[in-house]
């Protein structure tokens, strides 16, 4: 096989597998930028996958399914926001509980939905014109889901908002120095609520992608640990929407490669590569000069209370 076919294949697969990772990571980036860690991604994705499937199967419309996934992700995230922002509960424990709850609930409510072929999956698209560009065309614009393109677009938009608008400054201020933000009249709680819920919405869609696009069927546990990869990707991407694209693609490519290269390397060792790789990359980054942008939001994980530091 020539290298072009190889490259086209790998990039195509990296996009397909990386799409749910990207959506969920973008959401988590925003939540964490505002200072709230949400370890409940896995649970929100599982619920998103179920709701998307059930709705798409009932109504025959995959977009309604994705909308349902969006909604359920948002509602679950709201619960997390209520506990961590209003009740100032420990974010790690609340997120873990959310994962437990989401995985359990999706399995419970999903009984009876397994073993059914989705009657209305969201088809992949090929973008006419762009797809005929040599190399890049078949690599990026052929036979991919609309959600892949939306995800890439969303990453760009979220990057601009975060780094080039007043809203972005507000969100970052809330994550870096909530006290100072509060002092200049920013409603810290509101910003945190919005960012956490946004994270939930996107995680829900990520789950929906799994059950109406990636593998149009529902089975319990179909999020298969992706939610944890997202937590890692968020840090790997230095809390930056565009770097999240790179991270999601890299993880997608490495995952797919573990099946391509099986003949030569033990697959378990290939599977641990993305994880080991993430550490190595961060270590190399650490060797370089300190960059403010690369660091975690200073108030990450800490509840904000007026008058306390």
């Amino acid at each position: 096989m020539d290298w072009q076919t190889w490259l086209i294949g790998i990039v195509g697969r990296a996009l397909a597998y990386g799409t749910p990772l990207l959506w969920a990571t973008l959401g988590e980036v925003y939540a964490e930028r505002a200072g709230v860690v949400n370890l409940g991604i896995e649970g929100m994705m599982a619920m998103g996958a179920l709701m998307a499937f059930a709705t798409a199967q009932t109504t025959g419309d995959p977009w309604l399914g994705l909308l349902a996934a969006l909604a359920v992700g948002g509602v679950l995230a709201l619960l997390h926001a209520f506990l961590t922002v209003t009740l100032r509960a420990n974010q790690y424990v609340s997120g873990l509980s959310l994962t437990l709850l989401g995985l359990g609930l999706s399995g419970l409510l999903g009984r009876g939905w397994e073993g059914i072929a989705l009657r209305a999956p969201l088809p992949n698209v090929t973008i006419p014109g762009l797809a005929s560009i040599p190399l890049l065309g078949p690599m990026l614009f052929q036979d991919e889901s609309i959600l892949t393109y939306l995800g890439l677009l969303l990453a760009l938009v979220l990057w601009i908002v975060l780094w080039r608008t007043r809203w972005g400054i507000v969100i970052r201020a809330v994550g870096e120095a909530p006290g100072a933000a509060d002092a200049v009249g920013i409603n810290v709680a509101l910003v945190r609520y919005l960012c956490v819920v946004l994270g939930g919405l996107l995680a829900g869609v990520a789950g929906g992608y799994l059950s109406v696009v990636y593998r149009p069927a529902w089975t319990e546990g179909m999020s298969a640990g992706m939610g944890w990869v997202v937590i890692a990707l968020t840090i790997f991407a230095s809390w930056d929407p565009l770097q999240a694209v790179g991270g999601a693609l890299l993880f997608g490519a490495l995952y797919h490669l573990s099946f391509r290269l099986q003949q030569w390397v033990a697959p378990e060792l290939l599977k641990l590569m993305p994880y080991a790789f993430a550490i190595v990359v961060l270590a190399f980054v650490g060797l370089g000069k300190a960059q403010r942008r690369r660091g975690a939001p200073a108030a990450l994980g800490l509840p904000y209370v007026r008058g306390e530091r």
Partner: peptide
């Protein structure tokens, strides 16, 4: 009871315990 109920149950207990932090 279905196996998944255990997860739901544990999730609920945790939520209430951390909620009681308040």
């Amino acid at each position: 009871l279905p196996a998944q109920i255990v997860g739901v149950f544990n999730g609920l207990i945790l939520f209430f315990i951390i909620g009681s932090e308040l």
